[in-house]
Write a protein that binds this DNA or RNA. Structure first.
Lengths: 128, 128
DNA sequence: TTATCATACAATCAAATGGTTGTATTAGAG
DNA sequence: CTCTAATACAACCATTTGATTGTATGATAA
């Protein structure tokens, strides 16, 4: 099993960083190619400084990194972090899915006749 | 293919709603059982009104619904919406993964000797 | 060397967030 | 009917967010 060594605070920052269309678009654009901050700024209807700030938020969430190239700062998606985020989302999905599945089982039980032999408890011990 | 009929604005709200530990915990708690707002409030070190607001944020993101039961308001995770969110995350994952995969292919090409037969172009046409 | 382009960073501002307390309403319990 | 528990909601407050403009610095091009 994969352990997610990511703090609650980091999870908050991660979701927060993704909760903005411009920032999601920046991640998308920087996945394949490095893009300078000014190139990004050209793409949006907002000031250079505003785009700089969005990049900074993504950087704090470690979703992108910046690298100096001449006088430019190239922004690049942090693939490791993104894969980590994907695993995190998988984790939520699994956690939630398993709860939903267990709920479905309980509902099915409720609809069946009460004296039916109980299906194997399938370890209802709370997961997290 | 499944179409995600969810607006950018809704995606923002969704991620925003998930960017708080308390709110994620509320979703977790209400997945299996209905829980009243006051029961939730007992679980956290904050005022009843604060918990009410968190529930309201989740409600606006449509991650939970409220239902009157006597004088109580039972909070319940909105499974349809959660499944929709999961599909959305899957969608991001796929989109990103495919971009990352294409990038990996490009990197592999760069590292190989230039006169080696180029691997099948595998449709580098930008997705989205 | 001197413009100029790309960036950094500070100050400012309005709006949103996340919390509080206080008051009003409503439904059950006695 | 009266008390109380559960909720709704308004007002308020501090902090953060998302944007702006202005100024300073550093690297390149001419």
């Amino acid at each position: 099993m994969v352990v997610l060594e990511i703090s609650e605070h980091d999870v908050n920052r991660l979701f927060r960083a993704l909760a903005d269309s411009t920032r999601r678009d920046i991640v998308r654009r920087t996945l394949v190619t490095d893009v300078s901050v000014s190139q990004l700024a050209d793409a949006y209807e907002m000031s250079f400084a505003a785009v700089q700030k969005h990049v900074a938020v993504l950087e704090e969430a470690r979703l992108v990194t910046k690298e100096s190239r001449g006088r430019e700062r190239m922004v690049r998606a942090n693939l490791d972090r993104i894969r980590q985020a994907q695993r995190l989302l998988d984790h939520f999905e699994e956690l939630w899915r398993s709860r939903i599945d267990r709920l479905d089982i309980l509902l099915a039980q409720d609809q069946s006749t009460p004296d039916e032999p109980a299906p194997p408890p399938s370890s209802l011990k709370a997961a997290t």
